[in-house]
Simulated scan of single mutants.
Amino acid sequence: MKDNSQETTHFGYKTVDKAQKKSLVAGVFDSVAAKYDVMNDVMSFGIHRLWKRQTLDASGVRKGQRILDLAGGTGDLTAKFSRIVGPQGQVVLADINDSMLKVGRDKLRDMGIVGNVEYVQANAEELPFPDDHFDAITIAFGLRNVTDKDKALRSMLRVLKPGGRLLVLEFSKPEHDVLNSLYDFYSFNVLPQMGGLIANDKESYQYLAESIRMHPNQDTLKQMMEDAGFEQVTYQNMTGGIVALHRGFKF
């Protein structure tokens, strides 16, 4: 009997051909791009800004460095990194989705951020950059949408400089049962309704809730990073484990 496990993957709770997932995810983010920042604030009650601040603090980024903000979307982290690295540094805002990249580029240009930011449409599984190129890579709320996460992690390792670090900020598994139950109720009963009211797209936010549940938990992702070749991998739970920040180094 033919084993189809290598040919299929999950899109939320649905099983789809691996070749389909990229276009399905693209459809979600084409739909939500224009309202993405507003929905982030509403969905997280603004707490996503604190999660991203913690990621910045853990990045160790300094003036003159080269940073990859992968799946960087509308550019929240890119904007901060741009100011930190200064005119001698460089930040690459990369996203597989052209609609998100355009929203990010327009937003950052409206903020007056030009000169040290480059915009690249890129697939995390096959990054179009040289080996040993970046001092740090961040991927915030993007890894769960990648079809082949193991391949993507190996690709990130390749383009990191020795001594560089990867930071993965992603929704994860709440630490306590009561919080987990409340989070489930919010995700599947409130979040899609918000998506329908604010972004006129209930289905995309249903997928986002499902994609969070299908993402590897904290310890599983830690092991995946180690298997990809990262060292000294640690994670920090935030908001009771609703979000986790994983950090790993290349030596």
Rank of each mutant, 00 (worst) to 15 (best):
A124K: 12
D201C: 10
I113P: 07
S204R: 06
Y119M: 12
L245M: 10
T234M: 02
M194E: 06
L127W: 12
L143E: 03
A58T: 07
A244M: 11
D148Y: 06
A124C: 11
A122L: 05
S31V: 03
D17P: 01
I47K: 15
P162F: 02
D201Y: 02
D201R: 08
F141E: 04
L221Q: 10
I139M: 14
G72N: 00
D98R: 12
M1P: 11
R247L: 04
K14F: 02
K80A: 15
T15V: 15
H48Y: 13
V103D: 08
K107G: 11
P162D: 07
Y13N: 15
R158E: 08
F129A: 03
V42T: 01
K21A: 03
A244Q: 12
A228M: 05
D135W: 09
A33H: 08
D227V: 01
G60C: 01
S155A: 07
Q54A: 14
D131F: 03
G89F: 01
Y205E: 07
S44L: 04
N40R: 07
A94E: 14
V159I: 12
E118V: 02
V168E: 11
P162I: 00
K2S: 12
G27M: 05
L143W: 09
N180D: 15
Q65S: 04
L208I: 14
G46T: 02
A124D: 11
H215K: 00
M214S: 15
A136T: 04
A122F: 13
Q121E: 15
G195V: 13
K173D: 14
I96P: 03
K2N: 09
D106Y: 05
D184W: 07
K35G: 04
